[in-house]
């Protein structure tokens, strides 16, 4: 009986971890949006593009951080809970 309960808890844990990884999709969308918009802007005005590389990376970093949070939640569910 307790073994069943543990199996059940394990199932919940793995399902939760899998669900948490979906947050990474959001980060992917965000990073893609930033990079795509940067590229379209850079193609319109290529001479201004090198000066904005820092902003590009900062934007990507901010968007990615939120995805990394969900990755962290997944890891915590997998290994720490």
């Amino acid at each position: 009986m307790t073994g069943d309960l543990i199996q059940f808890a394990l199932m919940g844990k793995y399902i939760g971890a899998g669900l948490a990884t979906m947050g990474l999709g959001g980060a992917g969308i965000g990073v893609g949006t930033i990079a795509g918009n940067f590229l379209s802007g850079a193609l319109r005005n290529p001479s201004a593009a090198p000066g904005q590389m820092a902003n590009l990376f900062v934007g990507i970093a901010f968007a990615e951080a939120l995805g990394i949070f969900s990755f962290l939640i997944a890891l915590l569910l997998m290994f720490a809970v």
Binding site: I6, A9, L10, K13, L75, L76, F79, A80, V81
Partner: peptide
């Protein structure tokens, strides 16, 4: 952590489970 300890047996006690 307590759940981890009980599950850890599956992968052998040599490697501590968890992060």
């Amino acid at each position: 952590m307590s759940t981890t300890e009980t599950v850890a047996g599956a992968a052998g006690e040599a490697s501590q489970k968890g992060m």
